[in-house]
């Protein structure tokens, strides 16, 4: 399990991760927070449902995708923790939503 080398002393906030409340450092890299919170897998693939986790951590591989505040396919490795963030796991291909129900 991923862990912090030492306490950072940064201000914390509560974020929702797949329905669970997780304490996270404001401004921390989101993928890093999710790894430490044991969010596994990050998603399953649209093609075969294989589980996937972050691979490159620099915006290249698109393995760390998640739904953030209702917006699908966000690269969590390029996001930082904000207060009140809601993260949901993407399982398989995302459904096509009727007009008005999609991402804002």
């Amino acid at each position: 399990m991923f862990r912090l080398l030492e306490a950072t002393g940064r201000p914390m906030t509560a974020i929702k991760v797949d329905g669970r409340t997780v304490q996270a450092e404001i401004g921390a890299n989101l993928a890093s927070v999710l790894l430490r919170a044991g969010f596994q897998p990050f998603r399953t693939t649209p093609v075969s449902g294989e589980p996937r986790m972050p691979y490159c951590m620099m915006g290249v591989c698109f393995e760390c995708l998640a739904t953030i505040d209702g917006i699908t396919n966000c690269q969590t490795c390029l996001e930082t923790v904000r207060e009140g963030m809601v993260i949901e796991r993407q399982l398989g291909a995302s459904p096509i939503k009727p007009a008005g129900e999609g991402a804002p």
Binding site: L4, M53, C56
Partner: peptide
Amino acid sequence: MTAGAAQILLKTDQTVV
């Protein structure tokens, strides 16, 4: 994951395994 990814975790948030 790549070694680079692991190093980014170390640099950004002191995250290690």
